[in-house]
């Protein structure tokens, strides 16, 4: 600190212009990216005003101009929102569904990666890895189609059940089952992908550690417990931090595709509710308010996750 000389601001500006004249194209190159960033990420920030207005989309000549012209109402929409039972419902659904996913699904890819690492023959390992990993490439709509074929009223599972004389199960409309369907399909789609991440971490472990432990007479279980798991612990911690940090931001498209009116009570998450409030009921101010609540809490969580990651792992998550 003490050795660093403070550079006068004028020298800094001067240095910048010298650099700019030497490398003008580096700045020109930034323009396309900044253009899209401003249009789609920064300009919408101005739209947050809608949450504090009685927004009327028909004022002015376009929807953004309408934001400038709509009347201010202060915190009206937030008061209404926090008092409504819908708010509590969608917030708890979001936390419950994503919480279930973390608790149940988080350990599985770690185990799968360790098992994949046990397979010595390269071709067999490749084949297994490739098969487990393929659902990751399907869209949620395709996954929905596949599971509809399996679990729908006339799907294969209900066919087997009725063959055994058991009543058909309504997987897509039963409120007791629907969340488990979300957890299961999430696992089906994502486990392979996450396993590959852990497998990459396992491959990075020093082989010498295993050799040394083997000479000391350690068996497979001990090798896994004392070398593999500690070796990938940073990756595990990072993945957990990311999962918790993004708890409000995940699962939107999945729920949007899978749910239906019969399961709104248990499946409606913040973002699906924002979507129906805005596009369905045209209540743009209220939906912006709820979206803003979501963004602010998500922001705090992600910054928190990053702080934890920096403390524990000495690395930033971006």
């Amino acid at each position: 600190m003490k050795d660093v000389k403070r550079i006068p601001i004028r020298t800094k500006v001067h240095n910048f212009f010298v650099y700019f004249r030497q490398h003008p194209w580096l700045y020109i190159m930034l323009i396309p990216g900044l253009f899209f960033l401003c249009v789609y990420k920064f300009w919408p920030l101005y739209g947050i005003k809608m949450a504090f207005q009685d927004y009327n989309i028909f004022l002015g000549s376009n929807p953004m101009e309408a934001i400038a012209l709509s009347p201010w109402v202060g915190l009206k929409h937030f008061r209404k929102l926090f008092a409504s039972s819908n708010f509590l419902r969608v917030l708890s659904n979001t936390l419950i569904i994503n919480g279930m996913k973390i608790v149940i699904l988080f350990p599985i890819p770690i185990i799968v990666a360790i098992l994949l690492n046990e397979i010595r023959r390269r071709n067999a390992r490749k084949l297994l890895q490739t098969s487990i990993y393929i659902p990751y490439f399907f869209s949620w709509v395709v996954v929905f189609g596949i599971f509809y074929s399996l679990l729908g009223t006339y799907g294969i599972v209900n066919g087997l059940l009725s063959g055994l004389g058991i009543e058909r199960v309504r997987f897509f409309t039963d409120q007791k089952i629907f969340r488990w369907l979300l957890v299961f399909t999430e696992g089906w789609k994502e486990v392979g992908y996450n396993a590959v991440i852990y497998l990459a971490a396992i491959t990075g472990i020093d082989v010498g550690l295993y050799e040394a432990a083997k000479i000391d007479g350690a068996n497979k279980w001990r090798l896994t417990w004392h070398i593999t798991l500690p070796g990938i612990l940073p990756t595990i911690v990072l993945m957990l931090i990311l999962k918790v940090g993004y708890i409000l931001d995940t699962g939107f498209e999945q729920v949007l595709v899978f749910y239906n009116a019969a399961v709104y009570d248990v499946a409606d998450i913040i973002q699906t509710y924002v979507y129906r409030l805005s596009m369905g009921k045209m209540d743009f101010s209220m939906s912006t308010a709820l979206g803003l609540f979501n963004s602010v809490v998500a922001f705090v969580l992600i910054i928190g996750a990053n702080t934890v990651s920096k403390r524990l792992l000495n690395r930033s998550i971006w």
Binding site: V39, Y40, K41, W43, P44, L45, Y46, G47, I48, M50, I57, P63, M64, I67, Q271, V274, Y275, S278, M279, F284, S287, T288, G291, L292, N294, S295, A298, F299, I302, I303, W318
Partner: peptide, 12 residues
């Protein structure tokens, strides 16, 4: 890390 929300994006 900070998202304006789907409704403002739609308006843009």
């Amino acid at each position: 890390v900070f998202f304006g929300g789907i409704v403002p994006a739609y308006m843009v």
